Simulated scan of single mutants.
Amino acid sequence: MGIVATKSFSFALEIIELYKFLSEAKKEYVLSKQVLRSGTAVGALIREAEHAQSKADFLHKMNIALKEANETEYWLTLLKESNYIGTDHYQPLMASCKSILRLLISIVHTTKTSLNR
């Protein structure tokens, strides 16, 4: 789980920078708090999963992390389409988000498969 934990931590730092930009430069406080909450929750949930009590608990936490990553993708797209952020902010964040989503989907699928054996 090292790669997904590392990527999600770096992503959280990027999201914090986005939040600072949105709140300071754009004076946007509602959407920015939403993306801050969901974008930083991904890594926190992955960190929680590292010490899960069981495989089922691990799967549950990773599923929630997946949902948070998916929600973050939504907020990033909304910020882009509403012109709060430009392509320069959007593209690297979305690339990171999609990379984390792919990893989480794979982890969830593999864990479900191993639990069903």
Rank of each mutant, 00 (worst) to 15 (best):
Q34L: 07
A65F: 12
M94S: 09
E73N: 13
S54D: 02
V30R: 10
T77Y: 14
S99Y: 01
K98P: 05
E48S: 05
S32V: 09
R47Y: 01
T72C: 09
A56H: 02
M94T: 02
A41S: 15
K26G: 12
K80N: 14
E28R: 07
E28W: 09
K61V: 05
S32K: 08
K80F: 15
V30Y: 02
I64V: 15
G86S: 14
L79F: 13
C97D: 13
A52R: 01
A65H: 09
A41Q: 12
N63K: 15
M94F: 04
A65W: 10
Y29H: 15
A65M: 11
S38W: 04
S38D: 05
L45M: 07
A25S: 15
L59Q: 06
K67G: 05
A69N: 14
A44E: 01
V30E: 08
S38Q: 05
Q34W: 03
G43L: 09
Y84Q: 14
S54M: 01
E28L: 13
L76G: 07
H60K: 13
G39R: 10
E50Y: 00
L66P: 06
L36E: 04
K61W: 08
M94Q: 14
H89I: 01
A95V: 11
A52H: 00
K55C: 00
E71Q: 12
E48Y: 05
N83P: 01
E28I: 08
V42H: 06
G43T: 06
C97Y: 03
S82R: 14
V30M: 10
L93Q: 01
E48I: 05
Y29T: 11
T40R: 03
T77H: 15
G39S: 13
L76R: 04
A95F: 03
I46M: 07
N83V: 01
A65S: 15
H60E: 08
A49V: 06
S99L: 14
L93W: 02
L78C: 07
N70K: 07
Y74I: 11
Y84L: 15
E68D: 08
H60L: 04
Q34I: 04
G39E: 11
I46F: 04
L76C: 06
T87G: 03
L59G: 03
A49W: 02
Q53V: 00
A65K: 09
H89C: 00
A44I: 01
K80T: 04
E73P: 02
K27G: 10
W75H: 12
D57Y: 05
E81W: 03
N83T: 11
T40M: 04
N63T: 15
E71K: 10
L76S: 06
S38Y: 03
K27Y: 14
N83H: 14
S54N: 02
Y90T: 05
Y29D: 05
E81S: 10
G86A: 11
V35T: 13
C97M: 03
S82Q: 12
A52Q: 00
A69K: 01
N70H: 02
P92Y: 10
Y84A: 03
E68F: 04
E68C: 08
H51F: 08
Q91W: 00
A25V: 15
Q91H: 06
R37T: 13
S99H: 04
Y90V: 03
T87K: 14
E71S: 11
R37G: 14
Y90K: 03
E28P: 08
L45P: 00
G86M: 05
I46D: 08
H51G: 10
F58C: 01
K33S: 12
V35L: 01
K98M: 14
L78D: 06
G39Y: 11
E81Y: 08
H89A: 08
